[in-house]
């Protein structure tokens, strides 16, 4: 043993291998089960993927660093369930690339935000949080209302996720830009396709209150309004336990 270790130290390469061995093998033993962890995730047949507009909104959420102050993970603790709603299930974030569970609540959890407030509330809140909640310390996001949403590369966004296992259909990928426009323009001819491809319950509204323009605000509010509403699994589970 000591002789072995002495040789190990003499050759720097051996030492490198030892460090890799100890750390990586140790790490791998723990990490390996996680490569099959999707098997342990609950099934939710009713779950749908994010629409192109919601995907764009999610990317704005990431871009502005919202995850630094808002979690999207309700823990299995009584006070959290009472404050925010049914605790989060793994299946609810199965298409989230990356996940946005967060680790800090400077603001409240957003896992069940969808449908809690009106679109108009969200728009007013994002433009100036203190106009709606006087004590808020959230930044103002006025530029979301000013910036046109870029939809040109949304097909690429969906195609990349499709290659990584998110079940987008070819029709969804091909119509991504049109669907993004249609979801925020209920009166346009593009609106119908959104319901066809993503389900009748998909929100199709002028989220920013201006039907004529497709803004970043449209995308972000569309995303916020679908948080926790891609599947009913969490609500079903809570209801089943209540009985």
């Amino acid at each position: 043993m000591p002789n072995f270790h002495r040789k190990l130290e003499r050759s720097a390469i051996g030492f490198v291998l030892a460090i890799i061995g100890v750390s990586a093998i140790g790490g791998f033993v723990e990490i390996a089960p996680l490569f099959t962890i999707q098997e342990t995730v609950e099934k939710a047949p009713d779950m749908r993927v994010y629409t192109p507009l919601e995907t764009a909104g999610r990317n704005i959420y990431i871009r502005e660093g919202c995850y630094a102050c808002h979690s999207q993970m309700i823990r299995t603790l009584r006070d959290e369930v009472e404050r925010y709603g049914p605790y989060s299930l793994a299946v609810e974030s199965q298409y989230d690339k990356p996940m946005l569970w967060g680790s800090k609540r400077t603001g409240p959890d957003l896992a069940r935000l969808g449908g809690k407030y009106s679109d108009a509330w969200h728009v007013a809140h994002l433009v100036n949080p203190r106009a709606v909640v006087p004590q808020s310390v959230m930044p103002k996001y006025g530029w979301l209302m000013r910036n046109e949403l870029s939809t040109a590369d949304l097909s690429l966004h969906l195609a990349a996720q499709r290659r990584l296992g998110v079940p987008y259909t070819e029709a969804q990928v091909a119509n991504a830009s049109a669907d993004a426009y249609g979801q925020a323009s209920p009166d346009s001819s593009y609106a119908g396709g959104v319901g066809e491809r993503y389900g009748a319950e998909t929100n199709v509204r002028a989220f920013d209150g201006e039907p004529g323009r497709l803004t970043e605000m449209d995308a972000l509010v569309a995303y916020l309004q679908v948080l926790g509403r891609l599947t009913d699994a969490a609500h079903r589970q809570t209801a089943a336990k209540g009985k």
Partner: peptide, 27 residues
Amino acid sequence: DHQTFVAFAKSWGLFYLIALAIGVLIY
């Protein structure tokens, strides 16, 4: 499958830890 990996991690991971600790102490 997942169960195999978990069982492996739970058993051999522990042996690995103990063996390594003994090895380091001896050295």
